[in-house]
Amino acid sequence: MVDAFRLLGFQHGGWGAALLMAASVTVLLSVLGFALGAVFGGLAAAGRLRNSKVLRFLALGYCTVFRGVPDLLTIYLLYYGGSVALTSLGHSLGGSGFVGVPAFATGTLAIAIISGAYQAEVYRGAYLAIDQGQHDAACALGLNRLQRLRQVIFPQLLRYALPGLGNVWQLVLKDSSLISVIGLVELMRQAQIAAGSTREPFIFYIAAALLYLAIASVTGHAFYRLERKAPWRVRSA
């Protein structure tokens, strides 16, 4: 155990600082990926609720593909394929040279695309959970479309969506570990580097697991409080 303290410590040759730094990258990656995923998910949910067949089809296709294909495969696609696509796009616009995407941006995008597919389901379910009477009442008050959305539908949508979003957030946090395969030094990757270099995989993977657990429980608790303590709490949950 003395060995474990030395390896995980903050003195010279200890990996403690590196692991904590990497954990903050994990949090940042997850937060940005989740936020961008909210945009994708919102668009996809809106698409699925539209009357246009094409939009519905596209949105459903997006959700089906990225919920059904292993996340690892999606990450490989963006990693290897993303730059190729961008480079050829650059060339078609008359540019020259190569366009590369940094691993952090690729990772954020991958998480956004994957979590967007899950978030879409949550938003769609939340929208459908809003009582038809609310729409009718908002119309009757003479609110225009934007006002209806902003003042009546959106606040309710968020409260119905919160529990589901909490689940997606947990998924995102754990998915972020997969970004390690494309070389971004987040928590999982740092643990791997340390395990490889010290040949002490057990200690470092346990340390990584504990850090993930800590992040998951702190943020999970935050979601829980948001659900419980928010003034616009739903009557029954």
Binding site: K174, S177, A216
Partner: peptide, 8 residues
């Protein structure tokens, strides 16, 4: 449930 499958 709180740790990534990859870590497991």
């Amino acid at each position: 449930r709180g740790t990534p499958l990859l870590v497991q």
